[in-house]
């Protein structure tokens, strides 16, 4: 177990360095010269040259990469070209809302997805199963922004039930809860399909297993067989698969944030790219990538921890 964790950690180091190198090179290929930007439009060539020396831009690339890593370790991701705010400050302000949105989406979609998948597997081949399968195929084909726009139009605009722009406060306040409702319905709505599909497959597999037959043979109620013996075992792959779907969730979150003007990291990244704010774009992309590497690491370790059979592998 410990060996596995150490191995995974060691594998992560070169990947992280690779991400940082790509992030660093991103700033080398963009068409703007940071020295000129910093100096302003009226600066003389002498001044630009002085700033270039000051920023260390006249050093060889590998020295610059070292300096960049060193600054990164100190939590310095540079400053936005557009409004001069520190990238870390903007990131700090937007990560919370993004996690909030993801949490609120998973909170309702995972139980429903698991329930649908279990019911479909139990009544395999029935009308109910066909309905759930059709629903998950159709659900997996809906663009996130389509669902968002439909909800905005009906719930927000036509019926005026819930707000549909921005965030109004933390989740535990009524206003905050109301503001996150539509974005979370949107993002969770597209997440139900993969969860239901994965659960159905996992439960089907377990229902055919011998321990389930034994449970039935000793006269347990169907309820106990399905909930305690089948679903519980099926949940191991489902939990890890959901962990691996976090990437899918992030993709949906970026779009959802844009549709609902939700002040999250995804919207920050897209806005930075569209306004050519390179330090901000670089910072958000690096932080999101590193976040991913960490999530994958945790999911991988969890997988082994949850399923003893994986330990030798």
């Amino acid at each position: 177990m410990l060996r596995h964790v150490v191995q995974r950690l060691l594998l992560t180091v070169p990947v992280m360095l690779g991400v940082l190198l790509i992030g660093f090179l991103l700033m080398q290929v963009v068409p703007t010269d940071p020295a000129i930007v910093r100096a302003g439009p009226t600066a003389t060539p002498d001044v630009v040259e002085a700033i270039r020396r000051d920023l260390g831009l006249d050093e060889p690339l590998w020295v610059q990469f070292g300096t960049y890593l060193w600054r990164l370790l100190q939590g310095d991701l540079g400053v936005s070209i557009i409004n001069n705010v520190a990238v870390t400050q903007e990131l700090g302000a937007t990560i919370g809302p993004t996690l909030e949105l993801m949490f609120a989406s998973l909170f309702w979609s995972i139980p429903i997805g698991i329930a649908l998948g279990t019911v479909a597997a139990y009544f395999r081949g029935s009308v109910l199963d066909r309905f759930v399968t059709a629903l998950s195929v159709a659900g997996g084909s809906v663009p996130v922004f389509f669902l968002g726009l439909v909800l905005i139009w009906f719930v927000g605009f036509r019926w005026q039930l819930l707000p549909f722009t921005g965030r109004a406060g933390p989740l535990w306040t009524i206003e905050g809860w109301q503001a996150v409702a539509l974005p979370a319905l949107t993002l969770g709505g597209v997440f139900i399909a993969p969860v239901a599909r994965m659960t159905r497959t996992a439960v089907l597999e377990v229902l055919g297993a011998e321990h389930v037959r034994t449970a039935r043979a000793k006269g347990l109620t169907e309820r106990a067989v399905v909930l305690r013996h089948a679903l519980r075992n099926a949940l191991i792959p489902v939990v890890t698969l959901i962990g691996l779907q976090i990437g899918f969730l992030l993709g949906g979150a970026v779009v959802t944030e844009t549709v609902f003007s939700w002040p999250g990291v995804g919207r920050l990244a897209v806005g930075a790219i569209l306004s050519s704010d390179f330090p901000m774009a670089q910072g958000t992309i690096i932080v999101l990538s590193l976040g991913f590497i960490l999530i994958n690491l945790v999911v991988d370790v969890l997988y082994v921890a949850l399923d003893p059979r994986m330990r030798g592998a």
């Binding site: 991103l26 976090i246 990437g247 992030l250 790219i273 992309i285 999101l288 990538s289 991913f292 590497i293």
Partner: peptide, 10 residues
């Protein structure tokens, strides 16, 4: 290990 959206952004 990276989602497609990150490639898109980068």
């Amino acid at each position: 290990s990276f989602p497609a959206i990150l490639f898109g952004l980068a």
